[in-house]
C-alpha cells in the first residue's frame, strides 16, 4: 500500500515536471545576445567579401551563427516604430553589413553617428544587397 503511494507520487511528479518543461519550452522567448558568446569574430569587410565571393559557401559557413562584426558606421536608420538598423561599411562599397538592432537595445545605439568605430554581435540571416545580422547588440 505504501509502495503504491510512493510510485503514484513519483509518477505525478514526473508528469508535472514534463508538463512544466513542455510549457517552458513552448513559451521560451529569445535570449538576448548580450549573454551569448559569438561563434566568429571578423571585420565587416571580410564578412561582405565572403558573401560576394561565394554566397553558397558563405551561407553554409555563417547562417544562424552569432557573429561579432567590427566596422565603421556608414549610416543609422530608425523606423516608424523606433527600431534601429545600423549599416557598417565604407562609402565606396556597394554592400554593407546591416545590423538590425534588438528591440530592447534601441537606447544603446541612438547616439551612433557615421564614422563611429563599433562592434556588433548578431545572428547572420544571409545576404540580399547587404549581409544581414538580426538581434544585434552593441559590444563594449
Amino acid at each position: 500500500m505504501k509502495k503504491k503511494h510512493v510510485i503514484l507520487i513519483i509518477i505525478l511528479m514526473l508528469s508535472a515536471g514534463a508538463g512544466y518543461y513542455g510549457y517552458k519550452e513552448f513559451t521560451r522567448e529569445h535570449e538576448s545576445l548580450n549573454e551569448t558568446k559569438a561563434d566568429i569574430a571578423m571585420p565587416s569587410s571580410e564578412l561582405i567579401a565572403a558573401f560576394t565571393n561565394d554566397e553558397n559557401k558563405a551561407n553554409a559557413q555563417f547562417l544562424d551563427k552569432i557573429i561579432s562584426v567590427r566596422g565603421v558606421v556608414k549610416s543609422v536608420q530608425k523606423d516608424d516604430k523606433g527600431l534601429y538598423t545600423v549599416f557598417l561599411g565604407s562609402e565606396g562599397e556597394m554592400s554593407s553589413v546591416s545590423c538590425q538592432v534588438d528591440d530592447k537595445e534601441s537606447a544603446t545605439v541612438q547616439n551612433l553617428k557615421p564614422g563611429d568605430k563599433v562592434t556588433f554581435k548578431g545572428v547572420c540571416t544571409g545576404m540580399l544587397m547587404d549581409v544581414v545580422l538580426i538581434r544585434c547588440v552593441l559590444q563594449k
Binding site: F26, T27, R28, E31, L63, V123, T125, G126, V132
Partner: peptide, 10 residues
C-alpha cells in the same frame, strides 16, 4: 531572407 522572420516564441 527567410531566417530574418522573427517570432515572439523561439
Amino acid at each position: 531572407l527567410m531566417k530574418g522572420f522573427e517570432f515572439e516564441k523561439a
